[in-house]
Nucleic acid binder design. Structure first.
Lengths: 148, 148
DNA sequence: ACCATCTCGTCAGAGGATCTGACCATCGTC
DNA sequence: GACGATGGTCAGATCCTCTGACGAGATGGT
């Protein structure tokens, strides 16, 4: 990962700063809202739960962790009441991880903070540059996200 | 951190994909080059060592970890021969973490991979869009990197 | 139906990464 | 010189992540 404090930083590293900043803002806001028992790792898993529920294996794939790790994190989220596991009606081996009520409350807070942060960034960059940034990142995702 | 598999992803999450892709590419290339005893956490610290050496506290600040964590990672890097610690001539309390020969070799590989990846991304986006992306990310860094 | 094979998820165990708290040596300043 | 601030370490705990092994259910060919 080496990259000096030099002038021209690589694009990957430049991408890191906004991501880290958002994650820190989110975590702080969640703690402030009383959800102080959540970790970033749990959040990264929870963030990938689709409306109807998502299989553990799918969560693991998208988050780029092993299914053991994902299972461990879902255990914690379940114990804390953020998610629940229900049988998958289409496959008796599988179970769907769904948001519980408490989980939905967290998502609501997260959505608000995300919108806030994005508004700040847009204000800093200007509408047009922000839109271009989004477009470029979305196109970049085509070649950098194996699970798009 | 929650963010659904929904349509319009937030900018922070969009930033994550390129960063993760680059880090994975780097790690794979380093392993392929025989540097198979390095971890991403070590890399994130090593990446911030300036040419003349950097203090532990500075490394910790920039990587956003505690100085204990940074010290632990530098211990490993030192044991593996990637870096060395030398006394700071300007302050008897402090020591400078410097790249050792083996560390320089890693940096060389990393530089090459970074350039490769950036060339691929530029090819995908087009010269102009890539330049705009870089410019936007650099401006965004002004408000997202506390240690710029 | 049946069997080989794959997929979904779990259990067990180990190694890393990261934090908090306590502590010492040195620096800078009044 | 005395005192608060800074650089770094030690100790201990917690969380995250992985590898390996495994059982239960699905799938496809015969």
């Amino acid at each position: 990962m080496p990259d000096p404090a030099g002038e021209r930083q690589n694009l990957g590293l430049l991408c890191f700063y906004p991501h880290r900043a958002l994650e820190a803002r989110l975590l702080a806001a969640l703690v402030a809202a009383g959800f102080d028992d959540i970790t970033t790792a749990q959040g990264r898993i929870a963030a990938r739960i689709a409306p109807g529920g998502t299989r553990l294996t799918a969560l693991a794939e998208q988050a780029l962790v092993t299914k053991q790790t994902a299972g461990h994190l879902v255990d914690q989220l379940e114990r804390a009441g953020y998610v629940r596991r229900v049988p998958d009606p289409t496959d008796a081996r599988a179970r769907l991880v769904q948001m519980a009520e408490r989980g939905e409350a967290v998502v609501a807070v997260a959505r608000r903070v995300e919108a806030e942060v994005e508004a700040e960034w847009t204000a800093h960059l200007g509408e047009e540059a922000a839109a271009q940034l989004r477009a470029a990142l979305e196109r970049l995702r085509e070649v950098t996200d194996p699970y798009r």
